[in-house]
């Protein structure tokens, strides 16, 4: 279970507040969607959960299964089960995707006090995962994300999530830049990972993705706060009416 209480965040120099007392709870097995206008702080929330340096947490707490994430290094949070599928995945030239996957997987296993995977075992997992997402084998030999299309990068994020088996998967605008076929493949990849123990935080600007990854709850974010919470039907309402209401409300 992920619990975020009264979270206040500014950018590092402290001049600009981005999150203003955000509250959000995601139960085990729940798929929560966050929707909101551009600039409302959705990516910031995902970065703060994952532990990016650029932000200053002024107040509040983030607990994963009761553990205080804010006191942990980013790699420790990853080992504890936080996975962030980036809105803009980074390129690591010269590091074969396969090499990166293995390094990451074994680092996390080590972080949890587990044994490293044997190479055949690892290769098998990658092969199965890649096939499901339509990722060709030779892409795994190329430098991570180097020269990948937007859609390929997003698929690679999902492959990483599948291998790393997090307890909470955060998807930051994974649908952006995907055509409908890719959207389906990626959504199927995510749906296959849904389980009673694993929760998801699906960040999106558009309702479309939620046709494929059907959420349990939908939260509307504006000006760094959750301003409304409902079921999956809330997404349709937003799609029909836009965010205009929330932008003015929150500003008022």
């Amino acid at each position: 279970m992920l619990e975020i209480r009264n979270l206040h965040v500014a950018i590092e120099d402290g001049t600009k507040k981005i999150l203003n007392g955000l509250n959000l709870t995601i139960r085990d097995g729940e798929v929560a969607a966050i929707m909101g206008p551009n600039g409302s702080g959705k990516s910031t929330l995902s970065y703060v959960i994952a532990g990016k340096d650029d932000y200053e947490v002024l107040d509040g707490e983030i607990l994963l299964d009761g553990e205080n994430l804010l006191e942990m290094e980013p790699d420790a949070r990853a080992a504890a089960g936080v996975f962030l599928a980036f809105q803009y995945p980074l390129e690591i030239p010269g590091v074969a995707t396969m090499t990166f996957l293995k390094a990451a997987l074994n680092a996390q296993r080590k972080g949890r006090g587990e044994n490293e995977l044997t190479t055949p075992d690892f290769m098998k997992r990658v092969k199965v995962g890649a096939e499901k997402l339509g990722i060709p084998q030779d892409m795994l030999k190329r430098g991570l994300n180097v020269g990948f299309s937007g859609g390929e990068k997003k698929r690679m994020e999902i492959l990483q999530m599948a291998l790393l088996e997090p307890s909470i998967g955060i998807l930051d605008e994974t649908d952006s830049g995907l055509d409908i076929d890719a959207l389906k493949i990626v959504s199927e990849g995510v749906n296959a990972l849904r389980s009673a123990k694993r929760s998801f935080l699906v960040i999106t600007h558009y309702q479309r993705l939620l046709n494929y990854i059907v959420p349990d709850t939908v939260h509307v974010m504006s000006k760094g706060q959750i301003v409304r919470t409902g079921g999956k039907e809330l997404a349709f309402e937003l799609e029909a009416n836009g965010y205009a209401d929330y932008v003015t409300n929150a500003a008022a």
Binding site: A50, G51, K52, D53, E73, P74, D75, R77, A78, A79, V82, F83, L84, F86, P89, L90, E91, I92, V95, T99, F100, A103, A104, L105, A107, Q108, G111, Q160, L164
Partner: peptide
């Protein structure tokens, strides 16, 4: 880049060595 690697579980040193 470093943050991306660390989000995947690598320590700062491991991430630097890898890059």
């Amino acid at each position: 880049q470093l943050f991306y690697c660390r989000q995947r579980g690598l320590s700062a040193e491991e991430a630097t060595a890898l890059i």
